[in-house]
Write a protein that binds this DNA or RNA. Sequence first.
DNA 1: CCCGGGTCTGACGTTTACGTCAAGGTCCGA
DNA 2: TCGGACCTTGACGTAAACGTCAGACCCGGG
Lengths: 164, 164
Amino acid sequence: MPSSSPVAAPAAPRGPAAGERLLGISEAAARAGVSARALRYYQQIGLLVPARTTPGGMRRYSEGDLTRVARIRELQALLGLNLEEIALVLRNEDRLAEIRLTYRDERTSDAERRALLRECLALQQDLRDTVQAKRDALTGFLADLDTRIGKAQGLLAAGGAPPA
Amino acid sequence: MPSSSPVAAPAAPRGPAAGERLLGISEAAARAGVSARALRYYQQIGLLVPARTTPGGMRRYSEGDLTRVARIRELQALLGLNLEEIALVLRNEDRLAEIRLTYRDERTSDAERRALLRECLALQQDLRDTVQAKRDALTGFLADLDTRIGKAQGLLAAGGAPPA
DNA sequence: CCCGGGTCTGACGTTTACGTCAAGGTCCGA
DNA sequence: TCGGACCTTGACGTAAACGTCAGACCCGGG
């Protein structure tokens, strides 16, 4: 999906906390522990839109943006998701947050909002299941490793005085 | 490191269990759930050398080879290691196995073998620590998700009759 | 108003882990 | 022994996630 197309989905505007000091792309990148290029790329594929853009077209990032980058990196490193999958997850979370905000709004019907909420919840639980499966696998892996290590340690301990 | 160089490290010959039925690359690939190309590539970078090679130059894989492929995939998917890192891990495991075999050999001194063993053990424990760190992170992640899900569920439950 | 440093948009390069041909060589059952 | 299925080694292609230029543009301080 990361084609050379002009621009992807808007990815829900991050609201800067009114009067917050925004960061240029270099500082934002440094604080987030990624490259400026990565930030531009995330924007290109609709993963992260900077909180603001100056009239001249320069990106300005909020703290919330940094948090989002952290989440992206987490989903990358911990779950091994690719950016497309991460986009799905984040968009779902965005929708959930949006629903929370407009939940008491009068414009949509109760049933409608509940349906939407249920849909988002299902996706979240999907993710949860994925995470748990992975954690369980890692637990097994760990046990396996401990067994191996135990054996080698036994060998080491026995090495001093071979019995019989 | 996966350059176009002729061939990499031998990666410890897998001994086929004397009289075992060996598999051609296609069947091996199918049973291991990877492509034939992947198997060739693993060999090229010294990750997996088939148990035997016919005089004509055709690869023959043992069950042990399949196990090794499974381990490679596990390290890839679960830990997100790249093939170079996996090569390190596997080579270390190979050495450990080798040490186990020759541990009572007379040719090397006791101290020497113990030193080697200790070195391998250290690497294994490094890996163990990595795994545990990852598992812990996943545990935290899971708790986080559960919190979010709980909140959303609360919202859903309260949606029917907004209190006062 | 001007200047130096930060930033912009293309656009091409890079790495990993293979996929996908093409042109031949090998193996084995009839 | 021979034919078709399987396999071999190059060699080039590909997708993701950026890296790295070049050339132009913006922005805040003096």
